[in-house]
Amino acid sequence: MRPTTPPDRASAWFPGPTGLRSALLVLVAVAVSAGGGCGQSEQAVAPAPDSGVPRIVSLSPALTQAMIDLGLAHALVGCTPFAPEAANSVPVVGDLLNPDLERILAVDPDLLLVQPTARGVDPALRTLAREQDWDLVDWRIDRLEDVRNILREVPSILGRHGADEQRLQSAVEEWLAQSEAVLTPCPVIRSAGRILVLYGVDPPAGFGTGTYVDDILVRLGGRNALQRPGYPELSLEDLLTLSPDTILVLGDPDRGALLQTRFEPSPASPEVLTVEADALLIPGTRLLEGVRTLRATFGCPPTDIAENGS
């Protein structure tokens, strides 16, 4: 599993253990009715025009989560299939790679939030936005600072579309203050030596330099053992030659246990820790929750704001 699409998104889309039958029903429903997403009709949930609430389409799970966390879930009129649970009733209008222009047209947004892929924003989407006079905002989210900058821009952008800019400004400032608190350097992490953070174990794949997780690690006083850019795939042999002091596995504890079996127990073996923090797999507002879990895993001393989650 690569970062940016945590498992909980998908399971949220398929609630409960109804399994294959539900999925087939969903497939059939999608196939026969061109409209609707997450099992809902867009007509049923889209806020009425001119209601004073901006009509937002988000083509990024991270940005969708940010809107929800800023109290704007009711303003969402379109999202991707793997949006957070709170957006279950919001119509699906495609995803980052394949925006469904017809559906976006149907929900008629004021504001389109896009996290561009490597090839940029879909030109057809850009053209449509220009023709329909929609405000298209595209943000790359690679680094921790990207998340912070986006949040700083959000109040004024949404304010242009009728949202309460003052309230949003307060919410953003609170988030930024919390982020400063939870990112306070932690002596335990500093003394943990070189830390390798993995988002996959079979094959191993890690967060290198220039990623938001590397930024978080550095802010907490840690040292990233993987000093190469991006999200490279590694071999088991690479893990041994990198010889990190600590390996941090994001996700299910079984994954950490699987990796642990690869190392002979010896004083030189790295400590393998598992952090059940899907929030760290998405570079968005929920990162704070992920960092809190990370701090707790290492046993960092609490920070007033950080640990009470206010």
Partner: peptide
Amino acid sequence: LAAAVMVGVDAPTGGG
């Protein structure tokens, strides 16, 4: 992979 997503468990990788 799809079945794992539907029942909400971790998707198998590599040896799985």
